[in-house]
Design a protein around this nucleic acid. Structure first.
Length: 694
DNA sequence: CCGCACACTTAGCAGTTTAGAT
DNA sequence: ATCTAAACTGCTAAGTGTGCGG
């Protein structure tokens, strides 16, 4: 049933109002672009091998430069102070302390105490609910709702057996499978082109699970994956998808309509009498588990869910969703201390999965807001905390020393906390506290720098973190000490784990945990970078956006948010450069024409000649404008090759910083936030002016 | 203390749609 | 009109952090 496909929201209107003049932005010769300060932009080299800038969050840099160069100067101890000063240096700071105070207060107290409960607004129409304007009523943080009603989940469409003419073959012979085994077979067939199917673990896991759903006869017959031929089946699905793409406008319209209807019916819930959007109301369909990185369970069968697997959570006095006929829910509960509407246990890893609200909902939005308030709170405490861990670097107690070093990493490099994981159950990845000796190398000297730590490990999603960082001498000494008499596979911080670390952090500041440092450092970096990179003189929106993207990029690099380079990247890049060159030639040519038109006009001072001359000049200007746009695009693209900006934008950057920047520099918010993002950050967009300071 | 269950946030990728170039 | 790249969305895996029971 093709029925379920995307229903995406409206695309952001791409306001095409590049107006006004700009100045430099980049060399007219197509050479690497320079920032306002003439700082040259890095050039990426080896594909996946790149270094991350030593990512000193406290040290604002012109560009998200990546390469190792520079950075010697601050073998630390001073960087804290620097950063503090840096914050001031823009003298832009509009004494927003007071403003912060107000906002904080509004927020905290609102949430906290008994401010008058506004009448519960019925959400009659499309009118978006401005929950952030409302006085918070529940002081009790553990109660998430008083009333919750929803229609339950949407199940995956049932399996449609293959038509008779589509054949799976075993050992060269056509073999018809029973629906259970056939369905699982199609999961594999659909992935035939994928890299996964070349992996031994994937194949073994798949084959094992596949055999579990076979009948006795099937099982007796199918003994070797190597003898299976899925090609015809794979082709069939390819054909189906072509077919789908080629459907008529009307059919596509129709499907869209149906989808919208589905969303209307299942995509919303009544949460304390507000109509709120649900994030994921469809249950995950069955398929083969695609773990990231070297996941031991890749290829295992993710089973089809039945109502009997599903727990419903809603108000007692609500319309309780009905299970499909002939079925029962696993359980219906009424737990208002949690935010999920539906949950189930996924069979591959045994984890719970949930249906929850969309990010634009009150419950998610408030949480997000709170997160940034906690991070801002850290801003005022961080100096003290840094002093603390500096001191602790020399503690006589090993655990304290380890804690200090770990904290130093988390703060300076924005590493994740690094909870321990059950081994063998998932890919071998680490964070700060779970670093092993083999993940770092110590260099007393390296490329002109002293006390360099070379990190090389796989982090979340098996994304490689590779970085060479000069550290404090004391940190360096401690690290050698921690590694004494240990093997590569031993924990670097053997006396430390995230829970003790977080407990300690919590004692320093309410709500402080390791991840707050990531949020804090990301946001403060954005703020600093924006201040530094935005040229007030240059009013061109395109170049301002480039500045924004660069600031964003600095954060992405700090947080190590990577992506696979787009397909055909170098070809694309080549094409862009061709275009630029062509444009340059055009400009040359146009300039010639201006010259001759000019002399023409000098010889014969007619109105016509003058017009011609003017027009030629205008053309040059227009072409130059286009050239700059192209060059900016090319630069942005090049710099962004393997950097993912979305994650930090969505999860780490206080949206109020961005909104304030937009207001200050008259950049329309929709240039930096698409529809979804504006929706998620509606609270920030509504409440902030250009004076906001993180 | 710990191990584990649970809830919730953060993450990259794939597929689809849209915009822009030719 | 057709092609291509960019933008966007959905998806779901993989983290973080809390709290509980032993």
């Amino acid at each position: 049933m093709e029925g379920v496909s995307s229903h995406n929201g409206i695309a952001s209107p791409s306001h095409n109002k590049e107006h006004k003049k700009r100045k430099y932005v980049l060399g007219p010769d197509g050479k690497p672009l320079k920032g306002p300060d003439g700082h040259r932009i890095r050039v990426k080299q080896e594909p996946r091998e790149q270094e991350i800038s030593s990512g000193d969050a406290h040290h604002t840099k012109k560009h998200p430069k990546v390469k190792t160069e520079k950075r010697h100067s601050d073998v630390d101890s001073t960087h804290r102070n620097k950063s503090v000063k840096k914050e001031k240096h823009g003298e832009k700071r509009k004494h927003s302390e007071s403003e912060n105070g107000v906002k904080d207060k509004k927020k905290k107290t609102d949430r906290g105490d008994a401010s008058p409960t506004k009448k519960v607004k019925k959400e009659e129409t499309q009118e978006k609910w401005k929950w952030w304007e409302e006085a918070g009523q529940d002081k009790d943080n553990t109660i998430k709702w008083k009333f919750l009603e929803h229609k339950g989940p949407v199940f995956a469409p049932p399996y449609e057996p293959l038509p008779d003419h589509v054949h799976f073959k075993y050992d060269g012979k056509v073999m018809r499978l029973q629906p259970e085994a056939e369905e699982v077979m199609t999961f594999y067939a659909k992935m035939l082109e994928h890299d996964y199917t070349t992996k031994e673990d994937f194949n073994r896991n798949f084959f094992g699970d596949w055999r579990k759903v076979m009948t006795a006869e099937e099982k007796a017959h199918i003994k070797d994956l190597g003898k299976c031929n899925f090609v015809a089946v794979a082709d069939y699905f390819k054909m189906k998808s072509e077919e789908r793409k080629a459907r008529s406008k009307e059919e596509k319209q129709m499907e869209k309509k149906n989808n919208e209807a589905l969303i209307e019916e299942y995509g919303f819930c009544d949460w304390d009498h507000h109509k709120e959007k649900i994030g994921n109301f469809k249950l995950e369909p069955p398929g083969l588990f695609r773990g990231r990185g070297n996941h031991p369970k890749m290829g295992k069968l993710k089973k089809r869910l039945n109502p009997e697997d599903v727990i419903i959570n809603c108000s007692k006095n609500s319309q309780i969703p009905k299970p499909p006929s002939g079925h029962k829910w696993k359980e219906v509960r009424h737990d208002n201390t949690v935010t999920w509407l539906v949950s189930w246990t996924e069979n591959v890893q045994g984890q719970n999965k949930y249906i929850m609200l969309n990010p634009n909902s009150r419950v998610k939005g408030e949480k997000d807001w709170q997160k940034y308030e906690t991070a801002r709170n850290l801003k005022s405490k961080v100096g003290k905390i840094r002093e603390n861990y500096m001191r602790d670097l020399k503690s006589t107690e090993m655990m304290v020393r380890q804690r200090a070093v770990a904290l130093y990493f988390i703060d300076k490099l924005a590493l994740r906390a690094g909870n321990e994981k059950e081994d063998g159950e998932s890919a071998d990845t680490v964070g700060c506290c779970s670093l092993r000796c083999e993940h770092i190398k110590l260099h007393k000297h390296l490329d002109d720098k002293d006390f360099v730590v070379e990190f090389d490990f796989l982090g979340k999603d098996s994304i490689r973190y590779y970085n060479k960082v000069p550290v404090l001498k004391q940190v360096f000494k401690n690290l050698s000490l921690f590694m004494e008499d240990k093997e590569g596979g031993d924990d670097l911080f053997d006396r430390l784990n995230t829970s003790t670390l977080n407990k300690y952090l919590n004692s320093l500041m309410d709500g402080l945990t390791a991840k707050v440092f990531r949020t804090y450092n990301a946001s403060i970096t954005l703020q600093n970078q924006l201040l530094e990179l935005t040229d007030p003189e240059d009013e061109n929106v395109a170049s301002r956006l480039l500045s924004y993207n660069r600031a964003n990029r600095a954060v992405a690099i700090l947080c190590n948010h990577q992506r696979a380079a787009p397909k055909n990247f170098s070809e694309q890049m080549g094409r862009m450069n061709d275009k630029i060159r062509k444009k340059q030639d055009e400009i040359q040519d146009a300039k010639q024409q201006v010259k001759s038109a000019k002399s023409d006009y000098k010889h014969m001072k007619t109105e016509g000649k003058r017009k011609l001359y003017e027009n030629k000049k205008k053309r040059v200007a227009r072409l130059q404008e286009q050239l700059i746009k192209l060059e900016v695009q090319a630069t942005d693209k090049e710099e962004n090759k393997e950097i993912a900006l979305g994650t930090s934008k969505l999860n780490y950057l206080d949206p109020r910083i961005t909104v304030a920047w937009c207001k200050k520099y008259e950049v329309p918010v929709e240039k930096v936030y698409n529809k979804t993002q504006r929706d998620k950050f509606a609270w920030a967009i509504a409440m902030v002016d250009e004076t906001y300071e993180f």
